[in-house]
Design a protein around this nucleic acid. Structure first.
Lengths: 330, 330
DNA sequence: TATGATAATGCAACCGCTTGCATAAATTAT
DNA sequence: ATAATTTATGCAAGCGGTTGCATTATCATA
């Protein structure tokens, strides 16, 4: 059987409540007593039972990170896993555990259980899972949405990168480089972040407007631009919603013998590790996923500690300029 | 305050132990009583407190997945996150929570805490964290290493893909395609899985031997092969330890105007989403990361339930043949 | 109908820790 | 020296369940 607080108390010749106070350090205890308790703890190799502590104290010492992934691909999406790294780091500093749970199959049950069965003190949610009804069951339980929810109804707290500003950045950069007909390639036009990126593109773009959706694969981008690029007056630049779209586009350009960047410029969202190894390397609207995770976790802990009300945090994106948009180098 | 089991009991007109039995379903209870209890539970929107259950039952209902990542890059490595998806799925089926923890900074303390503070019932560990001393503190606590430990001393339970067989597969395929001087590119020669892949390469390779380490970046591969490819008698095929090495190699070939696959064949480990979008698409030794995660979790649960002794499971890899090794198409 | 076996439920201790309140010890003020 | 404070520790009641044992209700058997 495991060593308990009373074993330690007995050995140190004190009451178990004293041991508890020593552990938690929030009471005045004589140095001498402390020393005896510490010695006893070390001698018995005592580790407090986290479950019992949580039960007694009413805090579970864990936060839940919910993912909404139907397959391994979505799960391993790099946006998520990078943010997760930062989240875990913040949690570790606070002495909290991180529980991950895939909410894809369960229609909100996952979230409800985590909350109501007292498994976590707070939740980080993906934009796709929040709905008015979910927000109702969540009530004033601490949560932060990582990303902007598709529907804002009832949702009051999130952290996101500024997609609109990112698209603006991309378009302006291409315009500065002398590109004139800028199109937008990729993305599911029902997803909030795509909508906002397209909105940014529309606002910044002064030429003709062209938005080409894809299903997220390089192939679909490849086929989608195939016909368009054959026309005489095809766009001379693309803002790509993701790296896969850019890859499909590059492939199509290669096939049709369109030179990048001299004849066609490309800027894509998200700095995948491989974006700088394409030919030519891709100019990127970079999202600081680390910062995103960090801010999300920080905000969540503020809410858990009741040190913060609901708020929305928006992080700026920034441009990593590479060859794919360097028309001036022509 | 939350609804407790006694609230339910009171409303249903039974003792709280009866409610407990109804919840856990492991006792004979009259249908009529059950109905009353369920009705009361529903009326009060009762959710059992997981902490209290765990404390009383002695099981925490969570498994820990330890990662060893110094930075977000390592954390988001695709091998890990894909396996994680499968692990979470198995856990969810068993009603278990998945706790992830980065053990990089803490020298085994993370693992020890998860275990001794009773936060998890079992652990999935990365090969890099296991050491004889750690195995000693782990004792007979249920664990499974995901990957083959670098040092086998004291380690008794792991699941891995068969790296040696994978390299064998790659070399044979290249030989069949008519390539004769096959080199091995990439990897840290101190890491177990690289060593085993190289061993497989050495066994299968009948021509000259050449192993070129890299630091995992495409750049280091690019520079490493630069000189080698300039020589007259350079290898006519490469087995790459990872996708990044293959990217660097492709870039070097392009620069030196070496045609792939007609003049030089490439097979790389790991099927990155982008491997089929390179020019030419890469032939891959594919690792079924989903199966790996699944088997690891299954084995862990068998150990938790004491239905299995320590064992080592090896999963076969298989080849995805694409253009980069199709010499016959010359 | 009495009797033993079996099924259904209640009782209460316990899981290991926290914490409000009471008490005892130490310190300071008068 | 004694009273008034302040500080350090003990006591015991929870936290919300689970579970072995005791008890009662139900049923089959003779």
């Amino acid at each position: 059987m495991a060593v308990t607080i009373s074993d330690v108390a007995r050995l140190a010749g004190v009451n178990s409540s004293t041991v508890s106070r020593v552990i938690n350090g929030k009471a005045t205890i004589t140095q001498e007593t402390k020393d005896r308790v510490y010695a006893a703890m070390k001698e018995l190799d005592f580790h407090p039972n986290a479950l019992a502590r949580s039960l007694a104290s009413g805090l579970c010492g864990a936060i839940g990170v919910v993912v909404d992934a139907r397959d391994a691909e979505a799960f391993s999406n790099f946006f998520f896993s990078r943010s997760l790294f930062a989240i875990e780091q913040v949690a570790q500093e606070k002495g909290y555990q991180v529980i991950i749970a895939n909410g894809a199959q369960s229609k909100g049950r996952t979230i409800e259980n985590l909350m109501k069965e007292r498994k976590v003190d707070g939740l980080i949610l993906p934009p796709t899972t929040v709905s008015p009804s979910l927000m109702e069951t969540i009530g004033d339980f601490p949560y932060v949405v990582l990303g902007t929810p598709d529907s804002l109804r009832g949702v009051t707290c999130w952290v996101d990168n500024n997609n609109e500003q990112g698209a603006d950045l991309a378009v302006h950069h291409l315009q500065e480089q002398g590109y004139e007909h800028i199109a937008y390639l990729g993305g599911n036009q029902k997803r909030g972040f795509t909508i906002r990126r397209v909105r940014g593109y529309r606002k910044a773009n002064i030429g003709d407007e062209l938005v080409i959706p894809t299903d997220g694969t390089a192939d679909s981008a490849y086929f989608a631009v195939g016909e368009i690029l054959k026309k005489e007056d095809h766009p001379d630049a693309f803002v790509c919603n993701d790296n896969m779209a850019a890859f499909g586009l590059l492939k199509a350009c290669k096939k049709l013998n369109i030179q990048v960047p001299s004849e066609l410029g490309i800027v894509a969202f998200d700095n995948y590790p491989l974006a700088e190894y394409t030919d030519p390397p891709l100019t990127i609207v970079d999202i600081d996923t680390g910062m995103l995770g960090d801010q999300t976790a920080q905000l969540l802990f503020r809410r858990i500690d009741k040190r913060s009300s609901n708020q929305q945090i928006m992080l700026s994106t920034n441009l990593i300029i590479r060859k794919s948009s360097e028309r001036t180098a022509k």
